[in-house]
Design a protein around this nucleic acid. Sequence first.
DNA 1: GTAATAATTCGGTCAGGAACGAACAATGAA
DNA 2: TTCATTGTTCGTTCCTGACCGAATTATTAC
Lengths: 228, 228
Amino acid sequence: MKSGPTYARVAALIGDPARANMLSALMSGLALTARELAQEAGVQPSTASGHLKALTTAHLIECEKQGRYRYYRIANQETATAIESLQVLSQHNGLLRVRPGPKDPALRKARVCYDHLAGEMGVRLYESMAARDFFKVAADGISLTDVGEKFVYDFGVDVQQCNASRRPMCLACLDWSVRRHHLAGALGAAMLTAAFDQGWLMRGSGSRLVRFTAAGEAAFRKAFPIVS
Amino acid sequence: MKSGPTYARVAALIGDPARANMLSALMSGLALTARELAQEAGVQPSTASGHLKALTTAHLIECEKQGRYRYYRIANQETATAIESLQVLSQHNGLLRVRPGPKDPALRKARVCYDHLAGEMGVRLYESMAARDFFKVAADGISLTDVGEKFVYDFGVDVQQCNASRRPMCLACLDWSVRRHHLAGALGAAMLTAAFDQGWLMRGSGSRLVRFTAAGEAAFRKAFPIVS
DNA sequence: GTAATAATTCGGTCAGGAACGAACAATGAA
DNA sequence: TTCATTGTTCGTTCCTGACCGAATTATTAC
């Protein structure tokens, strides 16, 4: 019985540290370029290319060409579920390291996912805007409606500049801490910048952590009410 | 970033073909000896010993000493869940091999899990007996009550001989096809043998498949009614 | 007591695959 | 056009870890 079960190959793919680092980065829901993933894994681009090819042929990730960039992302929900269950398993079995106590709820509440807002507040922003029909859902993604465009303009976002960037305008990014979506893409980044400019929040001690000021949180909740 | 995320180590452990073969065998819910697992993996006992040590220290499996045997089993539900999700992922992505069409439902209905009955009929047997208080649940496992002992005696099982064997008498074995329990252990094996002796069922074409005769299925359903 | 079996530890061999650098192809910017 | 940047392929090096066999320990059978 030389060859193992079919799932052994998949587990071996996830089991390599470099590839696992790439997958972890992609678990943010963002699509990243090959170079960014090489950086994330701490290997040379040539090495990363081989890993990305292996992951792609196994259908764990998929690739989208945009100009000279290649954006990679998690291919399907099954892959995300498998990685999540492995995370759960390693945290459960690794009795060594405990989750940070007071830091964790703060991170769950609000953090930066690369350059946009994630956590509960990020989910609130997305769902509040979605409930008010600021987004238009198309086959290739989501985009702003007219009223949505007016809203983000009033919020302090230069819509023209967002459109000009090569980056996808709007992205619905799955939030793995709360299992719901938040807003990513150029618009997500621009809105976070606008919120910073208005003094609503500041970067916290950790690299990903952001903290709302008291007045900023009140203003945020008013600007993004929960609409049923 | 040389070292990967914590779950990479777990995935790598599962990713080795020999270890994956062992885990697959243990996913039956049975506790197996080191030698049986070496056989299952197709490696020498010395090699298997190293694998088992690695899996044990990672808390993926756990070991119980009984005389000169060491019984290994899946350590916890998190491990089983992770392996299951990897199975799902590999089946979903491996577009190559399709599940056998007509064979599958028959296997779901009734099959042999090593030496006892599994599948829907196995679950029915266990749940029917449990509903009639034939089992007594203790901290270290389940055992027969007095009425249960009388029942299996009438069924044609030599209870004395079952007790004499070193093997655990009763085991509740999780059935991965229906996510419910069926009866394993010495009693499970003896009851399957008794059912064979009564001519209720026969071994099917596949090694694990068993088929009920029409009369046998009727008698089985009468002997193990669904009690609410 | 001796023999037999289960399981582990240790030392040595060897292949798979992860890493890098160099060269090349593709695309966008000057 | 020329240059810069992204990403891939190829050839090479090298190290981890999977495997086996022999020896050792522990337990049961005779």
